[in-house]
Design a protein around this nucleic acid. Structure first.
Length: 336
DNA sequence: CGGCAT
DNA sequence: CGTAT
DNA sequence: GCCG
């Protein structure tokens, strides 16, 4: 995980026959592989109290453009998420990677008092609270949020009321569909959208491969978007397929927003380090209109919402067929 | 002290 | 700069 | 902030 790229295979990379060592106290020390593929599941988190705290600190450092420290706390959170049970003492952190003095101090405080001073301070900070709200808008990152904060703006209503602010297309859609796309997407909604995209793809080319990826493929019940990967068996036609799918969605009247990114994939330019190529397939970031009638368990919407539809963020990726399995692996993700 | 994913 | 994993 |  530290490397975040392929590394030379060493003895320590081989999967060990790990019977956890029984410590003096009796309970086996929480000892976990640094490799996500050796983890039992990728969805359970027995250390939410600690990982939530680390994620607050990571976000705070992100807002302050301290990328290194931000990354350090994101890694610390990932490590705790990979544990098979909740931490119950500081000693259990001794063998864990990516946890240093600061992270351990936070864990110690939370173990003792249920909260940590540094985290409480960040949570009560006006700048943090405001940047958190601004960056919750699709299309608004830390730089834009900071710019708005510096000019004295403190709420989304202030942003919308300010005549001098020029929202780009992505941000306009972020505000337009704010309620819908900040609400969780259910597994039933993801299945419904997979069916819509599947039928659309099928109508264009019968010899297609398609899969739901991202968090839902990892077994999550809820997500913040839907990731779908598909391709055609006809090598070289995958970009045309994606463009045809987008046109069809538009014709069906369900395409609310589309940011298309053409493939930059070129085998001759990235031969050896092909993991970098994952990013280079044709893809698009969409906002789609999902009809309530298409979702078996109904929409994940408040009861007072009588529209009969909701907007959902959907990402489509279309790799060449000989890269399909590889892209599926990449887009099934996990930060670890 | 430099690097930190693409 | 934003998005995604 | 953590690590090599």
């Amino acid at each position: 995980m530290r490397e975040s790229r392929p590394v030379a295979v060493e003895t320590r990379h081989l999967i060990q026959d790990t019977l956890p060592a029984i410590s003096e106290g009796g309970a086996p020390a929480a000892e976990v592989s640094q490799y996500a593929c050796q983890r039992r599941t990728t969805t359970d988190n027995y250390n939410v109290v600690f990982t939530d705290a680390f994620e607050v600190l990571a976000e705070c450092y992100e807002f302050n453009q301290m990328d290194g420290r931000c990354l350090a706390f994101r890694r610390a959170a990932s490590v705790l998420k990979s544990l098979p049970r909740g931490l119950s003492s500081l000693e259990e952190t001794h063998s864990l990677p990516c946890l240093g003095g600061h992270a351990k101090a936070i864990i110690g405080e939370i173990l003792q008092h249920g909260r940590a001073f540094d985290v409480e301070k960040v949570l009560s900070d006006e700048r943090y609270q405001t940047l958190k709200i601004f960056t919750s808008v699709f299309g608004v990152g830390p730089k834009t949020a900071e710019k708005w904060y510096r000019s004295g703006l403190r709420s989304l209503d202030h942003i919308l009321a300010d005549q001098s602010i020029q929202l780009n297309h992505m941000q306009q859609n972020g505000f337009l569909h704010y309620g819908d796309i900040s609400r969780a997407v259910s597994k039933a909604e993801a299945r419904a959208l997979t069916k819509v995209i599947g039928e659309t793809v099928q109508a264009i080319t019968p010899d297609a491969l398609l899969a739901l990826t991202g968090g839902f493929r990892r077994g999550k019940e809820f997500g913040h978007d839907v990731d779908i990967i598909f391709t055609t068996l006809e090598l070289g036609m995958e970009e045309n397929l994606l463009l045809a799918v987008i046109k069809s969605l538009e014709k069906q009247g369900i395409l609310l927003y589309c940011d298309y990114q053409a493939s930059t994939f070129d085998l001759t330019k990235v031969p050896a380090h092909s993991f970098e190529a994952m990013d280079h397939f044709a893809k698009c970031f969409l906002i789609l209109r999902l009809e309530a009638s298409q979702v078996e368990e109904g929409l994940n919407s408040p009861v007072e919402d009588i529209r009969g539809w909701r907007a959902v963020r959907v990402d489509l990726v279309s790799p060449p067929v000989d890269r399909y399995a590889f892209a599926l692996l990449g887009w099934t993700g996990s930060r670890v």
